Amino acid sequence: MPTAIVLSIIAALTGVAVITQQIFNANLRVALNSAAWAGVVSYTVGLACMFVFVLAMRDPVPSFAALRSTPWWLWSGGALGALFIALAIFLVPKLGAASFVALLFAGQMIASIAFDHFGTFGLEKHAASPVRLVGAALLIVGVVLVRR
């Protein structure tokens, strides 16, 4: 099992991949002269990569019963991902990569603390302690500084 340091480095590199993806998608929008088609291309390539991943992992196709019993709201992850891609294609060029990411992280942190605190969507509860709230406040201060 990888150490916490290795997992933290991988998580940080994932952040690099996310902003790189958004910059590429914004440039693809210019190249294709269409935000919508840039999103379609991004998702098509992503879908192809996920099929390769499924094959590499040798995961069986989920049963029809499992698909039918899944709560409707769990299916919205793809729609939220598409919304993220579409908005990022527009916002990264207008705000800049640093401001976009700072605002993105602030929104994620605020929502994450609330979701953890209330155990939303089946998460294990983790209290919104004063230390966590101060951390979120400092992140918001960081967003303000990055935006200036």
Score class of each variant (00 low, 15 high):
32 L>K: 10
32 L>W: 06
35 A>G: 15
36 A>W: 12
36 A>D: 15
36 A>F: 14
37 W>T: 12
37 W>I: 09
41 V>C: 15
47 L>Y: 12
47 L>P: 14
49 C>S: 09
49 C>T: 07
49 C>D: 04
49 C>G: 12
50 M>D: 14
50 M>F: 13
50 M>Q: 13
51 F>Y: 10
53 F>T: 11
54 V>T: 00
55 L>D: 04
55 L>P: 04
56 A>K: 06
56 A>C: 03
57 M>L: 14
59 D>A: 15
60 P>G: 11
62 P>V: 01
64 F>M: 08
65 A>H: 05
67 L>Q: 08
68 R>P: 07
68 R>N: 07
68 R>I: 11
71 P>D: 02
71 P>S: 00
72 W>F: 11
74 L>P: 11
75 W>V: 13
76 S>H: 02
78 G>E: 06
79 A>F: 04
79 A>Q: 05
81 G>H: 04
81 G>P: 10
84 F>Y: 08
85 I>C: 11
86 A>G: 02
90 F>G: 04
90 F>R: 00
91 L>T: 05
92 V>I: 04
94 K>R: 13
94 K>P: 02
96 G>V: 01
96 G>I: 01
97 A>H: 05
97 A>R: 07
98 A>T: 12
99 S>M: 10
99 S>W: 01
100 F>T: 02
101 V>Q: 07
102 A>R: 02
103 L>Y: 01
105 F>L: 10
105 F>D: 14
106 A>L: 12
107 G>D: 08
107 G>Q: 10
108 Q>L: 14
109 M>W: 05
110 I>A: 09
110 I>Y: 08
112 S>C: 13
113 I>K: 06
114 A>Q: 11
